[in-house]
C-alpha cells in the first residue's frame, strides 16, 4: 500500500502528471480577480477568503477524472481489482496520494495568493487551516465521481458536475469558518468542527462508494 502511495506521487510529479496544473489554475483564478474587481482594497480583503476557497475547490476538481481512468487505460485497474487487499483500502490510499500531490500544494500556495487579495495574517491563517481541513473531503467526494465516470472517454466535466453539489457543504462551512475567525462575534470552532466532520465522514463513505462503483464498472 505504501508502494501504491509513492507510485502515484511519482506519477503526479513526472511529466504529464498534472500535480502542478491545479496550483497553476488556482493562481490564475485568484490572480485575475483583482483586475476584474478593481483596486478597492477593502472589498478585496472582504471577498478574499471566498475567492481563495472557490479557486481551491475548482482547482481540486481539475485532475480528479484521471484518478482511476489512467489506471483503467493501461490495464492496471484490473490488477488492483483482483487483489486480496480490500478495494476500499486501495481507493483510500489512491485518494491520499492524489490529495498530497494536488491538494496540499493548494494549501501551501494559499498564503501567497492571500497577499494578492489584501488579506491580513489572521484571515490568511484561517483560510490555510480551513483549506487543510476541507480539501481532503473534496478529493474523497471526487473519487466517487471519478469511479462512476471511469469508463467514459470524456468524463472530466461530468465528474465535476457530479461532484459539485456534494462539495458545496464543504465550501459553505469552510468559508463560514474563515469569516467567523476574522469577524468578532461569531465563534470559529463550530463551523471548523463541522468542516472536519464532513472530511472524516467522506473519508469513510467516499472510498466505500468508489470501490462499489469500480466493481460494477468492470467490463
Amino acid at each position: 500500500m505504501i508502494a501504491l502511495f509513492f507510485r502515484d506521487l511519482k506519477l503526479a510529479v513526472r511529466a504529464g502528471g498534472g500535480a502542478m496544473l491545479g496550483v497553476l489554475f488556482f493562481m490564475t483564478v485568484v490572480a485575475v480577480i483583482p483586475f476584474g474587481v478593481g483596486p478597492d482594497l477593502n472589498l478585496l480583503a472582504r471577498i478574499g477568503p471566498a475567492i481563495l476557497w472557490i479557486g481551491a475547490l475548482l482547482a481540486s476538481l481539475l485532475g480528479l477524472d484521471r484518478l482511476f481512468q489512467a489506471e483503467r487505460e493501461d490495464g492496471s485497474l484490473d490488477l488492483l481489482l483482483m487483489q486480496e487487499t480490500p478495494l476500499l483500502l486501495t481507493v483510500f490510499v489512491k485518494c491520499t496520494a492524489h490529495w498530497s500531490a494536488t491538494g496540499l500544494p493548494l494549501v501551501v500556495a494559499s498564503p501567497f495568493l492571500g497577499l494578492f487579495m489584501n488579506m491580513n495574517e489572521l484571515a490568511i491563517g484561517a483560510t490555510m487551516a480551513t483549506l487543510l481541513a476541507g480539501t481532503p473531503a473534496i478529493t474523497f467526494i471526487g473519487a466517487v465521481g471519478a469511479a462512476v465516470a471511469v469508463a467514459l472517454p470524456r468524463g472530466g466535466l461530468l465528474v465535476s458536475i457530479l461532484v459539485l453539489p456534494l462539495a458545496v457543504p464543504v465550501l459553505i462551512f469552510g468559508i463560514s469558518a474563515v469569516y467567523a475567525a476574522i469577524e468578532d462575534p461569531a465563534p470559529f470552532l463550530p463551523p471548523f468542527m463541522i468542516l472536519m466532520a464532513i472530511t472524516l465522514f467522506f473519508a469513510v463513505i467516499g472510498p466505500v462508494a468508489a470501490a462499489a462503483a469500480l466493481r460494477h464498472s468492470a467490463d
Partner: peptide
C-alpha cells in the same frame, strides 16, 4: 496478463 500491459509509461 490481459491485452494491456498494466505498466506506467512515465515510470
Amino acid at each position: 496478463l490481459g491485452h494491456r500491459n498494466a505498466m506506467k509509461r512515465e515510470l
